[in-house]
Design a protein around this nucleic acid. Structure first.
Lengths: 306, 306
DNA sequence: CTTCATGGATCAGTTCTCTTGATGGCGGCA
DNA sequence: TGCCGCCATCAAGAGAACTGATCCATGAAG
């Protein structure tokens, strides 16, 4: 093997154990090897150094001077290595880097992350939001909440919630212009983010002829929260995922004039690298979030359109 | 392999090289393995840690935070291990532990070791003398000069010089009692170490009937130098290896009354562990001492008896 | 003084890690 | 657009490393 190039690491590890325990047999037990293997490794190391490291006395072995000189640095070295790995493993199990769309983060995560922290106090969540879809290959991320169709090669995707959309507006605004009785009435009010393709989808599903909206600007999803805030302030009608604003609707700050919820085939998904499906912190987060949605599913009645 | 138990050492070494060189390919070159192997080891380590260690960016790789945290301790650890091994190797090539019989040490080695030191200034010779035959297995020794038949299992033995013996005495003493004309005349003088079995051998070879000497005490070889000193002081006749006292004989301080040199089949041999025949310091000493004897051989004319 | 127990060395056979070489993808660069 | 650099993947093979059986030496126990 080309691996044991200059410094025979495995032999050194065996040496350390043997020196510490003063016994080939016991070192073997500690390392999970047979006494034969230990003997082999020590001989290897002795040949490499060019000097015996142990004196084989009848019922016990002793370090030679060379061995004696070798031991301290070697055990120090392994201490460091061990520490480093343990620390890395621990740290990696303690910090969960979660990527999410800004809307989902603000409307859903921030309100519920507390229960995750409570259940896993040792895991610190670092939440990174952004419209761009994170590439697990070139960026540091453990898990992501994304919006799409869920087929990402190399990733495991688990469905979180439907991403429906429907118009919302403030009760006060709904009273103006003679009230909102049918979908077409919405066109009498200012539309917030009129370039959002969702408008077209929704009006089409509602049977309203093409309202001739400009849909050049793609829905970049960074603004839904602002749209909702604008709607709440009575500045117009926004098209958003009503599930995110259930509270505001229940409190009367927003109204959902029509029960027609649309879905363009893209939902919220949880995604993480297939190769890391068993990493504890990832399992923990997945289990938690799926549980949260399992409990909430009863409330979400949606109807697929398109 | 059971070896890579908890801490995958080889993977860590590869990691260190990759991190230092920021490249799988170049790390492979440095370590003497293929890029594939490097990739494999890094993946192994990443699985072990549970976290990616490198971000694979288009034309270069970057350490992740975890990798960044891991690196310093790992490289420190390997520094220590490397240092330790190098130091041990160096130390082991710098100190030569030489065992010898006291007589040989005093009469031969001490006078010539200087030339060895001169030729190999980096090798320090630690000379250990003692009558007991050193066991390379249970004692720290690199090379030994012994007296015997040269067949020691597991050791390489190389013949150094015949160990002949003959009576010597001071010129003054030889004048007394009417002088020494034939071997039997020696019996008129006091014998030094009369229990030495060499006396029996020599007298027998000289044709002198059994002088009835006590040979219970084995020749332990620790005393030849003292015997010679006593003889030189005129206190009696000693039986020694005349080659060791060639100077004193040439200077007239001692005389060798008869040319009859005996040898009991046991000579001086150089011995060292077969498994270590290629250790540099051992080769160096062997080469040197054999050369010394090769030059001296011309002078030693001996005749085997017994 | 046997007999037993302990601990290491040795040997041949086998397992399985690690390596290789070929191939493919991806992003820059000219 | 095609080439190049760099890493990932795959199947296959080499050989290091491990095992189990056996042997040997020593010291302790009966």
């Amino acid at each position: 093997m080309k691996m044991s190039r200059q410094v025979p690491l495995n032999a050194l590890r065996v040496f350390e154990a043997v020196a510490r325990l003063s016994s080939f047999t016991r070192a073997g037990e500690e390392l999970g090897l047979t006494q034969t293997a230990v003997s082999y490794q020590i001989k290897l190391l002795e040949e490499n150094i060019g000097e015996p490291l142990f004196l084989r006395r009848p019922r016990q072995i002793t370090l030679t001077e060379t061995g004696e000189r070798l031991l301290p640095k070697v055990s120090q070295g392994f201490d460091l290595l061990g520490e480093a790995v343990v620390a890395a493993r621990r740290a990696s199990s303690e910090i969960l880097i979660l990527h999410s769309t800004p809307t989902f983060a603000q409307q859903w995560l921030t309100r519920r992350l507390g229960t995750f922290q409570f259940r896993h106090p040792q895991i610190a969540v670092r939440l990174v939001t952004g419209a761009r879809i994170v590439d697990f290959h070139t960026e540091t991320a453990d898990i992501a909440i994304r919006w799409g169709t869920g087929d990402w090669p190399g990733l495991i995707s688990q469905h979180l919630m439907r991403l429906d959309f429907a118009p919302i507006l403030s009760p006060a605004l709904a009273e103006t212009h003679g009230g909102i009785r049918e979908p077409a009435d919405l066109l009498k009010l200012p539309l917030i983010s009129p370039s959002d393709p969702w408008w077209k989808h929704w009006f089409k599903a509602a049977g309203v002829p093409d309202p001739n909206l400009d849909t050049l600007t793609p829905n970049d999803f960074g603004v839904q929260t602002f749209d909702a805030a604008a709607a709440m302030a009575g500045q117009g009608v926004a098209i958003v995922n009503p599930a995110h604003y259930a509270d505001d609707i229940a409190a009367g700050r927003l109204i959902l004039p029509f029960d027609l919820l649309c879905n363009d085939g893209r939902d919220y998904w949880l995604a993480y690298a297939e190769s890391r499906r068993n990493v504890p912190k990832i399992r923990a987060f997945r289990d938690w979030i799926l549980e949260e949605f399992a409990g909430a599913d009863a409330c979400s009645k949606t109807e697929k359109c398109i």
